[in-house]
């Protein structure tokens, strides 16, 4: 602590202020992409893991982290990317899942329940508008890499499902 500018808790607090560039209702810590922090007096290294290999938001997140921590006084901010263990939607916090639901995006199921995807079976996804489970998949691929398109067959609302990986 003595040779650090801020405590790790404080640093995580700063990172909590950075929204996900594509789903701004949750922040990057809640999303689960921050894996490790190594800080000294004037330099800091943040280890992150990508959600999807080609997610264009990752570069934006890196830039946002650098900007935020530079503003807080770090002279050098390094971003390290790791792939193992691979990111999973299980790392999204429960609070964040609730925020996603309120925002109109059905949150991911737990990956152990979602194994049906591997077997090609349909899953039960709850409509974020009317909470019905009478929903159907329109497409496995949606407006961003992390989402699938669904429609509620009761209230007819089309919605995004944050797909589980």
């Amino acid at each position: 602590m003595n040779n650090q500018l801020y405590s790790n808790e404080q640093i995580m607090g700063f990172l909590h202020e950075i929204p996900d560039p594509e789903i701004p209702v949750i922040d990057i810590v809640e999303l689960g992409v921050i894996r490790e922090i190594n800080a000294s007096i004037d330099s800091i290294e943040v280890t992150i893991t990508p959600t999807y290999s080609g997610c264009p938001a990752m570069k934006q997140m890196e830039d946002d982290i650098k900007k935020k921590l530079s503003e807080k006084g770090y002279k050098e901010v390094k971003i390290k990317t790791i792939f193992n263990p691979p990111w999973t939607t299980d790392w999204i916090t429960e609070e964040a899942k609730e925020k996603l639901n309120k925002y109109g995006i059905a949150p991911p199921e737990h990956s152990s329940i979602d194994k049906a995807v591997l077997l090609g079976k349909e899953r039960i996804v709850k409509c974020p508008r009317c909470a019905s489970t009478n929903t159907k998949i329109i497409s496995q691929f949606g407006s961003t890499a992390c989402k699938a398109l669904y429609q509620c067959t009761d209230c007819l609302e089309p919605f995004d499902y944050f797909k589980c990986i």
Binding site: Y52, S53, G54, C55, F83, S139, F141, A145, L149
Partner: peptide, 20 residues
């Protein structure tokens, strides 16, 4: 539209893997 999005998504995943 959905297939257009699907192929673009798949292309993006594969490009990301390739970049790494």
């Amino acid at each position: 539209l959905e297939e257009d999005l699907a192929l673009t998504n798949i292309a993006l995943d594969i490009l990301g893997q390739s970049k790494s």
